[in-house]
Amino acid sequence: MAEVNIICIGCPLGCTATLTIGDGGEVAAITGCECKAGEKYVVEEYKNPVRVLTATVVTQGSPQPLLPVRTAVPIPKAKLLPGMKVLAKTRVKPPVKIGDVVIPNLLDTGIDVASTSDLAI
């Protein structure tokens, strides 16, 4: 048995939940959440913490030096910094439209990195 603390971000109360983790990695008990929605969130956050990666890539041949991008949907938290390494090596050329895929299948997550803005020549 182990204990993990996770802060719920569901409302300004910011409850600190304590999850008791069984030997098989399953959540055996939760204390500290003030509501059911919060319990659901902290279990999800324990099992599979995901975040949208937002950043920029360097452009070539545009007056705008950077193009803002995002992962289309959240990716595992552990892939944020490795994902940045891929973005750092990427260059884009105009024209790019908002929503265009800039990097397909980032780090084999099956999730694309897409432009969040137009890029003019």
Partner: peptide, 10 residues
Amino acid sequence: EDLTGPEYAH
């Protein structure tokens, strides 16, 4: 929807 600033502007 969960948008970025530039997307919200767009």
